[in-house]
Design a protein around this nucleic acid. Structure first.
Lengths: 216, 216
DNA sequence: ATTATCTATAGATCTATAGATAATGC
DNA sequence: ATTATCTATAGATCTATAGATAATGC
């Protein structure tokens, strides 16, 4: 009955949607997001994944490696979109590109069954083991700063760049408190808020929103 | 030489600025803010406080009790100011009161040697042991929502309330990344940003800022 | 006598490794 | 033979408690 080599699971569970490696990632993501990293034992991850604790070490070097993979997988879509919006579409107005980026990021953060953004705010992530993630995050930050500066070219935009990213990522903490956010409505409100924060008037915001729709 | 009952510390250290209880709170705050709660052992707290691990339990029921006390002590000033601004000064314009509240909260979050706001975002704080803190936090949230709604009475303010608090608290994550923030400049930028987010024009923001100075 | 510390430790973890086992593949 | 799991466990924690000790207070 088993369709691949290796000893079958003691639990009798078949493999999940993907393979055991993915089952472990899914289980760890759910637990790290809610309970935290150090509070989550490898045993509890294994239990949720339907395997024994030691099995995890056949697929990952350790607990850190699991978190790193989750972090990179979560930040990657944001960085890729930010890169695309910063370069290929540089002829489009900056306000539309920033609206599109903020909107997409908030959708990513508010959609899906897990609050994956919560991984970013785990204190353990400050460790050097996660330098590769920090590099990606810095890259994303730089894109936001560039776009904010381009929207408000008088120089105050650069100062407001951190506020812009802060507003976007505030949905992480918001979702932790109330888990029934309307992803679409929140994404609209935040993307509008980003431009409002930068001093755009309502007319310009409406135009940026329309232009953003054509970008993605 | 010793000026109070009880066995002297083995470390030979005298008591800190206050007493041992305060030394433990200070040590725990520094570690919880940077390393996290579960990652911080009672032994490491004791070491930093200059006492043995078991001594902690003479002053606190357990690790949870330490964190709860830190959380309540950190949120208290914010709640007290929010209450004061919501009631006693209700004749003053809402935009000035909101500016003053946001400004004061950001100053609290960015000042002092520790990033105490980081305590709020620890995943362990979700536990029921910290219900008293959550009640205070809900109270603060409600004050922000009230003020945001009063600034924009057309009903869109209520929807923007969470964004406002999100913007204020985004300084917590910002400070974790770069620890050399200019507290005054950031507080001004955020308080301005809060009103900008709610659709106030620059003139109204300038007026609110002036009026806020008279409130505190 | 009271207080605040100490030393010592029980009991419960937790991570990672060693080596056995049960499948498929050749 | 290779693979992926399992069982079992070493070694290192960690929290909290028991009970001894060294001060002051009366």
């Amino acid at each position: 009955m088993a369709s691949r080599p290796g000893r079958p699971r003691a639990s009798g569970d078949p493999y999940g949607e993907r393979d055991t490696r993915q089952d472990v990632l899914d289980a760890a993501a759910a637990l790290f997001c809610t309970v935290g990293f150090t509070s989550t034992s490898t045993r509890s991850v294994a239990e949720r994944a339907g395997v024994r604790q030691a099995t995890i070490y056949h697929h990952f070097a350790g607990k850190d490696a699991i978190l790193l993979e989750l972090l990179l997988g979560t930040v990657r879509p944001s960085v890729e979109l930010a890169d695309a919006l910063a370069t290929a579409t540089a002829t489009d107005p900056a306000d539309a590109r920033l609206w599109a980026l903020a909107h997409a990021d908030v959708r990513l953060l508010t959609s899906g069954p897990l609050n994956l953004g919560a991984l970013y705010v785990l204190p353990e992530v400050a460790g050097e083991q996660f330098a590769e993630f920090h590099a990606q995050r810095d890259r994303l930050r730089a894109r936001y700063d560039e776009l904010a500066a381009a929207v408000v070219p008088d120089g105050s935009g650069a100062e407001q760049g951190p506020l812009v990213l802060g507003l976007v990522e505030s949905v992480i903490l918001r979702r932790r408190d109330s888990d029934d956010l309307d992803a679409g409505a929140v994404a609209d409100a935040v993307a509008d808020g980003v431009l409002r924060l930068l001093g755009c008037d309502e007319q310009r915001i409406a135009a940026a929103r329309t232009a953003a729709a054509a970008l993605v």
